[in-house]
């Protein structure tokens, strides 16, 4: 282990962490409005293939990102229709979305498998900052999409905690009937929240195929959408804590193959389980705490809202 290998690890920790953070933020927004969306994995896959296709076709990562967001958003609207507008079961609809999304992405991307690298999200022009020792490559040389993820995280916190829009969204997620009585459209709020979640999952897919996997192939998401879902729970539905969790989980993803090159002989299979073990641990802690004080989860999560059913 030396400076090069440690810096290499930290670069990956931040990149993987912020890719997870994009997807987790989207899920957090949807869940704050009371909609559990287990379709993250599928939306990421569809976003990933859309980004690869459009990024290559138009030679621009920006266009790739936009198309990926649109693709993820459109897919999430299926969930919004079934689980919000029609009041179907959120778990079933979300799982179906993952299965459908993975299949759709595999089908749409079958001609792009193993094609050469596509345009990537580059670093910001930060000049000499990028040359700094350790902090340069680890922080300032990250892609602009990584910075964008941080900005989105701050924006999400601000909107949720400091604006009336956020207040309304949280109200819908805590007690839909109360929010409805107060004049909030529950359905409209939830559809928008799910849609934004889909867009962000699409962004995460673009990050994955353009910058991390550097190519499209079936199965490229490899369960990372599920890690994002777990991350929201781990982060207690708060953007800040979720960011910390993202770096931790991203760290585990990045550490998995590198431990061996550090001479630490732990099975990578064991390391890949750790995010879920941590999430289960946190769930246990939350469950014990919730006996004494209110649960940290949005109270109306997973429950469809129908006006006449009180």
């Amino acid at each position: 282990m030396n400076e090069v290998t440690v810096v290499g690890l930290l670069v990956d920790v931040v990149a993987f962490g912020l890719m997870l953070y994009l997807a987790a933020l989207g899920e957090l927004i949807a869940e704050k409005a009371g909609v559990l969306n287990l379709g993250v994995e599928g939306m990421m896959a569809v976003g990933g293939v859309a980004a690869f296709w459009s990024g290559t076709e138009f030679g621009s990562p920006v266009i790739g990102l936009i198309i990926a967001g649109i693709a993820g958003g459109l897919l999430s609207l299926i969930h919004a229709l079934v689980a919000v507008v029609l009041g179907g079961d959120q778990v079933v609809s979300g799982l179906a979305l993952t299965i459908f999304g993975l299949g759709l992405a595999a089908f749409a991307g079958k001609d792009y498998v193993s094609l050469p690298a596509v345009p990537q999200f580059g670093a910001l022009p930060l000049g000499p900052l990028r040359e700094l020792r350790i902090i340069g490559p680890v922080v300032f040389n990250q892609s602009w999409l990584a910075w964008f993820a941080v900005v989105l995280g701050l924006g999400t916190w601000f909107v949720l905690e400091r604006t009336s829009i956020g207040l309304g969204l949280r109200a819908v997620g805590e007690s839909a009937a109360t929010a409805d009585t107060a004049g909030r459209s529950v359905v409209r709020t939830r559809v928008i929240a799910v849609g934004v979640g889909g867009i962000l999952a699409g962004f995460a897919g673009a990050y994955l195929t353009l910058n991390l996997a550097k190519g499209w192939s079936e199965g490229v998401t490899a369960g990372r959408g599920w890690i994002a879902v777990a991350l929201v729970i781990f982060g207690a539905w708060r953007p800040g804590r979720t960011a910390v969790g993202a770096l931790l989980f991203g760290g585990l993803l990045a550490l998995e193959p590198r431990l061996q090159t550090f001479g630490v002989n732990i099975s990578p299979i064991l390391v890949s389980m750790l995010p879920y073990v941590l999430t289960i641990g946190v769930l246990i802690i939350f469950s014990i705490q919730s006996r004494r004080r209110p649960s940290v989860a949005p109270a109306a999560i997973g429950r469809a809202y129908r006006r006449e059913e009180r």
Binding site: V4, V7, G8, L9, A213, V220, E256, T261, S267, P268
Partner: peptide, 25 residues
């Protein structure tokens, strides 16, 4: 130097592992 990925096919992990080996010299 050998690094195991514990997967036949996961481009992200494969690329990440490759980078770790490059970093190791």
């Amino acid at each position: 130097e050998v690094a195991w990925t514990a997967t036949w096919f996961d481009p992200t992990v494969e690329g990440n592992t490759a980078q770790a080996l490059l970093d190791a010299g």
